[in-house]
Write a protein that binds this DNA or RNA. Structure first.
Lengths: 207, 207
DNA sequence: GAAAATTTTTACCATTTGGTAAATCCACGA
DNA sequence: TCGTGGATTTACCAAATGGTAAAAATTTTC
């Protein structure tokens, strides 16, 4: 059986892979792909550099692994958008899920933002193969709601862009947001409330 | 006069500084601070690396110079927001100016986004000193409009965040937008129309 | 408990990168 | 046209960086 079953990873392999990926997520999300170094990742993971390269083929593979894992998580909230649900509720719930994700997974949000910002040099293909089909499908769903007069006449594509932009903003531009809000108050769900009002009014059929 | 007047720069100095900064903007906006190299900048500028270091003290100074110059341009559209104008018009025009800037200066938008994404390590102080006062002032203006019942009851801070996020999205996430829109049609002002409708409905007092 | 397999460390290496010193080139005013 | 000061190149350098080979340590298996 010269190449058949990849052999299941040992406990120690599982643990160290997780530790390395978590450390790499910290470093990559903060410094970008080129700004991150294997030494930093190794230090953060509490392992030696050669030991890291025992678990991953190289720097690029670590980055790619992170992006791949992230892609699934990233699409989840949109997958859940249900064509058979109440249109306004479905969209507002989607906004909330996206905002929750930016809150709970800011490192992932920044990792993704950094990759796209640089022209998606590594994840580009998966945008086409994974993201675009889902995007087109959900745009069609929303277009159906518009045509049926269930929500206001709005361009589905740009609606989704606006949802992404406004929700991810709180993770990706956190440094700026923190400065401007004075980060004193528990302004946590002020954003949630604002976005709920904003998209709520936008979808309203009257006026 | 051992240190008084800095002496006015020659034509060749003016030209080369501009050339270098333009090249650096290309490289920094595409690869981030650490991802950019002096060799890349030199190649892009058509100069040798030591020659670049003849005009700037180092890599960091080039980056800082770009960010400083950018800061002014960046704040301009918000400065123009007039407390004495028609509230809805003022805000919608501001959205349009921001969107125009994302269209005309995508490199600058990405440079800024990259810096903030990494925690604003170099421009942080100027967020406090330059951006925050202006932000607070304009928030007060908008809050006044809200209190006077001239626009809907909306949180000024988060309104501005939403405007920044949605407009800059088209520059910062261009790689993604291009994939998802199929970049075929002249979808240039579809975004403008969408944002106009979106923020227009949001500010509407009725309902 | 010894052999086999896996994991970790030590000691490197080639390349890249930001930066410097000094020699050379060149424009331009006297 | 010649000298002078600014502009440019050549030849480097030390540190950092991604990565490797092989020995040593450790765990697992029989």
């Amino acid at each position: 059986m010269p190449d058949g079953v990849p052999k299941k990873p040992s406990r120690i392999q599982m643990r160290n892979r997780r530790v390395i990926l978590d450390a790499a997520l910290n470093v990559f999300s903060q410094h970008g792909y080129r700004g991150a170094t294997l030494d930093q990742i190794a230090a953060e993971a509490g392992l030696s550099k050669p030991n890291i390269l025992y678990y991953f083929q190289g720097k690029e593979q670590i980055h790619l692994t992170l992006l791949s894992q992230l892609m699934e998580t990233w699409l989840d909230p949109l997958v859940e958008l249900d064509a058979d649900g109440d249109p306004k509720t479905e969209i507002l719930d989607y906004v909330q899920r996206k905002l929750d994700m930016a809150r709970d997974l800011p490192r992932e949000s920044r990792l993704f933002a950094g990759e796209i910002l640089q022209g998606a040099p590594r994840i580009g293909p998966r945008l086409e193969s994974d993201l675009k089909p889902l995007f087109d499908q959900k745009c069609a769903v929303i277009a159906g709601w518009v045509k049926a007069g269930k929500i206001a006449d709005i361009d589905p594509q740009h609606l989704i862009f606006s949802i992404w932009a406004t929700t991810q903003h709180y993770a990706d531009f956190e440094a700026q947001v923190t400065v401007l809000l004075g980060n004193a108050t528990g302004s946590n769900d002020t954003a949630s409330q604002h976005l709920r009002v904003m998209f709520g009014k936008m979808l309203c059929v009257n006026n």
